[in-house]
Amino acid sequence: MRKLFHLLAMMMLGIFVQTSAQAETITVTDIAGREVAVDVPIKRAVLGEGRQLYIIAALDRENPAERIVGWRKDLIEADPATYQAYLAKFPAFGDIPAFEGLEQSLIDIETTIAQKPDIVFLNLETKRAVEEAAYIEKLGALDIPVIYVDFRNSPEVNTEPSIRLFGKLFGKEERAEELIAFRAAEIAKITDRLANVKPERPKVFIDRAAGFYEDCCHSFGNSNFGAMVELAGGDNIAKDLIPGTFGQINAEQVIVSDPAHIIVTSAMWDAYVPGGKWVPVGPGADEKLIDEKLAFYPTRPAYLGIDAQKAKAFHAVWHQFYNSPYQFVAIQQMAKWFHPDLFADLDPDETFKQLHDRFLPIDYQPGYFGSLSN
């Protein structure tokens, strides 16, 4: 009897130790500078941005759907090819409750609460709306912590700490650091060479979300794609014209600046603008169709007579690079367009394929870029 009692006591102690090892409360500082207590590793997450899957899939490669219990529909609508690739491999994605809204929209709080999540991830740009709606307090009353991350507003600053946050909360810190190191090394291939050679920087204009907007000229200031242009060795003409990340300038300003390159950010946006002038760059895109739709852009009044029009230096880039940890691939491709001789040995498609092979559970499909100058 004494041996049986001792055995039971040891079993109970083992269960206690195992549970304690699995459940730990830690305090993290999110991208908004808030200190938040979270039980880790998290098991049930609601994503205020469906495209947060881009980082989650790199951490939970074996089953990226496992911990997502609710998300916004933006991935399904804005990047349908990627969604279908994940759905084909992980059918559980089709069962995740999804709610409507764009980047700055509030989450559906009823759907969120109903899923009983361990955590809610929100984009930094939703902070003001969330505070006005008192969602932090409402969710906090139910012991549901909220974490702000940012791959969109200032990704050149916040991408690495956002990756680290996901890594820490998912119990995947080592893998997160591997991704950060890979990303940094690929960016350094550009910035180090530019620092050594110091080539002349061509003027560049970014036609933001082309085809999503009918009017001209939406662009980026000194952040996001604007910062990517600078890292790639270009001179973003809107950096001193647009305060902050996003904005619009008039056609006359573009003509006067006379950019040598036009970067069109676009995607397959049939869900938003059926039959629109968007350029369908993205995984598995039709190269011929990309060229056909990109050919419209030199006819825009803002580009008539500029250097880029004369040289057919119009390039299409997958818009979702602006909201993911994969921005370094776009930086490499832009560097090749701006400085083809300096970066002749660089292969952005191979870089993106390596990312997929090392970190992601789906196969790489080219189609993320197009250029009339090809």
Rank of each mutant, 00 (worst) to 15 (best):
Y303A: 07
A184Q: 15
L179P: 03
E160F: 07
P41W: 06
P145M: 03
H319G: 11
D108I: 09
P199H: 07
L294R: 07
D270A: 07
D270H: 06
I107A: 04
R128V: 13
A227Y: 07
I255F: 11
F314Y: 15
M334P: 10
S371M: 03
L87E: 08
A85H: 01
A302H: 12
V157W: 02
I68E: 14
P155Q: 04
P161G: 07
P117A: 01
Q320M: 12
I180K: 01
Q333W: 11
E24A: 14
L294Y: 02
E230K: 15
A9T: 10
P202A: 08
L179F: 14
V273C: 05
V40L: 08
D74L: 08
D95V: 03
W269V: 00
N63M: 07
Y368P: 10
P243Q: 03
I42T: 14
D235R: 01
Q327W: 12
I255C: 11
K73S: 15
L75D: 03
R72H: 10
K198H: 09
H261S: 07
I331V: 15
Q354A: 15
E137L: 03
F212I: 06
V229K: 03
S20T: 01
Y297G: 10
R201P: 05
L294E: 04
P301W: 00
E156Q: 15
D357R: 06
S257K: 15
G167T: 04
E100D: 14
F369R: 07
I147Q: 00
P199V: 12
L355Q: 11
A23G: 11
L4Y: 12
P340T: 01
C217W: 08
I55N: 02
V204M: 08
K189P: 07
F220T: 10
R67L: 03
I362W: 05
M268K: 04
D347L: 00
T351H: 01
D363R: 06
R175L: 12
L142N: 00
G33K: 08
T19S: 09
